[in-house]
């Protein structure tokens, strides 16, 4: 048995400490230990994007990141993007365009789209589609998702 490691990190602007085994993924830590269940486990291997979080300004798949790697990092999860009372524009547009059915992929899509708009506030449709290649949805057929993201652009 390996010892647990003490990790100090910042999640959605709040300082967070946790203990984890080196083998625990960041996704496992978020969901099982820190009660941040917005990030979903789809494939657990980097293909689907349901587990997306933003780490030090970059979109990552939290299932491919070890919990210990979060030490000293700033992490944004879906819980840090809007609230029920105050939806983020992306969340509002996903509702308006009915860009979800079962909803399992939605947190990942919103986090991913937010990372895109943070860097490129006015992406073209091609840019949106290229960027969202790392997020899978088995229900909607993607068009409504792409339209929702395009509609959430600045100035759109």
């Amino acid at each position: 048995m390996s010892k647990k490691v003490h990790v100090q990190t910042t999640i959605n602007g709040e300082a967070v400490d946790f203990l984890c085994e080196p083998r625990n993924s960041l996704l496992e830590v978020l969901r099982d230990d820190l009660d941040h269940t917005g990030a979903k486990e789809g494939c657990n291997n980097g293909n689907c994007g349901a587990c997306n979080v933003i780490m030090d300004g970059r979109l990552v798949n939290s299932c491919c990141v070890l919990g210990v790697e979060a030490d000293g990092c700033e992490i944004t999860t879906i819980e840090g993007i809007g609230s029920a009372a105050n939806l983020h524009p992306l969340q509002q547009k996903f509702l308006e365009h009915a860009a979800l059915q079962c909803g399992i992929c939605t947190p990942g899509f919103i986090v991913s789209a937010k990372a895109l708009l943070d860097e490129n506030p006015n992406p073209t449709e091609d840019e949106v589609r290229y960027w969202l290649a790392g997020n899978l949805c088995r229900c909607t057929g993607y068009d409504k998702i792409v339209r929702a993201v395009l509609d959430a652009r600045n100035g759109a």
Partner: peptide
């Protein structure tokens, strides 16, 4: 190669 999020890591 892969996706934007994989290329980020």
């Amino acid at each position: 190669i892969a996706s934007p999020q994989i290329r980020n890591m």
